[in-house]
């Protein structure tokens, strides 16, 4: 196994860092949620990459096909659940952003800080 052979993992790490960076560096709450999404999606890709077996096919039993190499289906199933969790988190996060916008009139973190300081 070489570094180049692991390229997918490097891509996943890069995506993960992009997500974390957006999450930390952006003041806009909606962009923060987008960063969080990227972060979660990178983990989903990680599981799918782990499951891949070189030359493997779909894990379906075919009569008379003999022994076939197939990719591990379990991580895919796990990720279906993780996607549901991710969608729910996005929904709750965006819902909170809507409520924040209604209460403060802004979704920019620095603006919100200023409003909170002005209002003891």
């Amino acid at each position: 196994m070489t570094l180049a052979g692991h390229w997918i993992y490097w891509a996943i790490v890069a995506l993960m860092m992009v997500g974390l960076y957006v999450l930390i560096a952006r003041e806009n709450l909606v962009k923060k949620i987008m960063g969080l999404n990227l972060f979660q999606v990178s983990v989903i890709l990680f599981y799918v990459a782990v499951a891949k077996v070189r030359g493997g096919t779909a894990p379906i039993l075919v009569e008379g096909a003999g022994d076939v190499v197939y990719s591990n289906p379990l991580p895919h199933v796990l990720m279906l659940t993780a996607i549901v969790v991710g969608v729910s988190l996005t929904a709750v996060g965006l819902g909170l952003a809507v409520r924040i916008r209604a209460a403060y009139g802004s979704v920019e973190e620095d603006e919100l800080d200023r409003l909170d300081e002005a209002d003891p």
Partner: peptide, 27 residues
């Protein structure tokens, strides 16, 4: 208090990072 919304948002961001870290560890 409207600050509750911001507290919940921060909790959501930190909690999700925590949860996703757990998921990576499980992987």
């Amino acid at each position: 208090d409207r600050r509750a919304l911001r507290a919940a948002f921060t909790y959501l961001v930190m909690g999700t990072i925590g949860g996703t870290f757990v998921l990576i560890g499980i992987g």
